[in-house]
Nucleic acid binder design. Sequence first.
DNA 1: GCCTGTACCGAGACTGGATCTCAGCAAAAG
DNA 2: CTTTTGCTGAGATCCAGTCTCGGTACAGGC
Lengths: 150, 150
Amino acid sequence: MQYHLGMADTQPLVAALDQAGYRLTETRRAVAELIAEREGHFTAADLVGEARDRRLGIGRATIFRALDLFADLNVLERLDLPTGEHAYVPCEPAHHHHVVCSRCGRTTEAQDHGLQVVVDDIARRTGFAIETHRLELYGICPACRATPAR
Amino acid sequence: MQYHLGMADTQPLVAALDQAGYRLTETRRAVAELIAEREGHFTAADLVGEARDRRLGIGRATIFRALDLFADLNVLERLDLPTGEHAYVPCEPAHHHHVVCSRCGRTTEAQDHGLQVVVDDIARRTGFAIETHRLELYGICPACRATPAR
DNA sequence: GCCTGTACCGAGACTGGATCTCAGCAAAAG
DNA sequence: CTTTTGCTGAGATCCAGTCTCGGTACAGGC
Ligand SMILES: [Zn+2]
Ligand SMILES: [Zn+2]
Ligand SMILES: [Zn+2]
Ligand SMILES: [Zn+2]
């Protein structure tokens, strides 16, 4: 089967599969392509629709399976948007947080320098033994700030 | 219609309705009761089940409508648990964050003293104009830490 | 290059959360 | 009390995500 796709950078995604010992199938490469082509965050439905439009013949369940897999490998992260939507963003495997543009949906990764102090402070005040945390930031990206609002 | 419910503190919930000019119906008072009785976070399905068990005759959609309403009024917050579940927690209207016990589900509110510095730092590094943020902390609460793990 | 075991795949049924519709009802105002 | 209209219950509907299962093709061994 041939998918005739473009040349967006699927390398990190495909490499993660390979490294973890998963099979590098045509279908997974195609999903990696669809992901790599995206600007900003996207939903599972977005990919399903895109695959259908291009007549790629990729099954619904397969796309969900691939998304789960990439998320498990930490090269894709699932965001819970304030709207309730579940969106995905490709990203680095290391711990980090996302800054999401509320106008165009593009995201950037951010290190949390200094956050540990805040977390420790909250742990002390509440008595909880904090195990993990999630920080999500919403705002307007540089590109959107430059345009005079849609 | 009479609901024969207990005496948990529904005051903040009901007051918020009143203050915002919504009707104080028996049904909404009943949902407020169900919410106020809860320990820790709960799902919409929890309330629907509870209402059905008690033969309160409250419709499914009505519970969802009430939850949305309370959330809009900022006296209830919707959490996106790491498991993907959508849970709710009653809370103060002011800006704050939640510390969630990953064993029993109880939550505590936390102020984010010092977080602003981190947010400003990220804004400077990324060039985003940050508008809002969400911080969720997961760990083990004092009560659960005291018990030798179930 | 060919064989083989098994991970993977597509189609479509299925589940369960959440929303919509609409006729009837009841809260609040006068 | 009467009127207005926001609110409600029942059930249809929608849709994201999962499951099943027969068939496929990847990767490793020869
Ligand atoms: Zn933008
Ligand atoms: Zn962090
Ligand atoms: Zn606990
Ligand atoms: Zn904050």
